[in-house]
Amino acid sequence: MLLVEELSYAYRTQEGANCPALMNVSLQIQPGERVAIVGANGSGKSTLVKHLNGLIVPQKGKVMVDGYCTSDPQQRAQVRRTVGMVFQNPDNQIVAPTVEDDVAFGPENLGLPVDMIKQRVHTALQAVDLLGARLRPVHALSGGQKQRLAIAGALAMEPRYLILDEATSMVDPEGKKEILQVLRQLQARKIMALIQITHDMQEAAEAERIIVMGQQHVLSETTPERLFQQPQLLQQAGLTQPPVISLADRLRRRNVPVPETVQTMKELVDCLCQLRSVN
């Protein structure tokens, strides 16, 4: 379990001022869960998840990862191994000169046998469809290829919790679907928890649980169904309805009686067809 207790954190800016990013945040994430973290720009999402793998440590409060305390330098290696993270900008985590070396870097540091490293690199590159670019230098990758590489690097570590900080934002929709499918399978088999920071409300709608951040606080911990029926909360948190729910809403406003329970494209299609056949 990831346990965050009364966590506060402020950045020190270059001119010496304090910039509060998190104030008194408490929450829990269970193994095997699928959680989305959403909220306005600057609300503290990235700062929060950087605490979950010990990249930054609490100034107040504490963060525990499967019983290990991120503030204790001696437990931090275990924390990093347990929680994998893919950053908003992949340049921050690409370390080796070629694609293959970069993915192998983490597993090598774990001291795994060579065969196992090869296997993991292969599986991870396959998941992000970069096998063909295995031998390419990393600096010669396109923006989206770099994001794919960063995901492969994290996946090869086989973490118990994987955090994606807008990690597929520059991958084409079909590629994104394929990558998320692999990750979801791991999550569905409870091998790995999947924690996604995203501005894509359709993606957030597919999570089991949503954490809504607003100005250094947790505004709400809820389910997608509940969140997207709360216009005031959405407004306050800088969010919008996901496209499918918004379509359903606009149809309702034009007197098509689509029930509020409709969440997915399939449900919307079925419901419209039913309405048409009774017409």
Binding site: N41, H199, T240
Partner: peptide, 30 residues
């Protein structure tokens, strides 16, 4: 947003935007 503002401040005649809404929150995107 800062990167976008830097280009807008030049008041160019044409703008080329490489994935301009990535990273913006949903209301910011709209």
């Amino acid at each position: 947003r800062v990167a976008l503002a830097g280009v807008l401040a030049m008041r160019p005649q044409k703008m080329i935007l490489d994935e301009p809404t990535v990273g913006l929150d949903p209301q910011g995107r709209e």
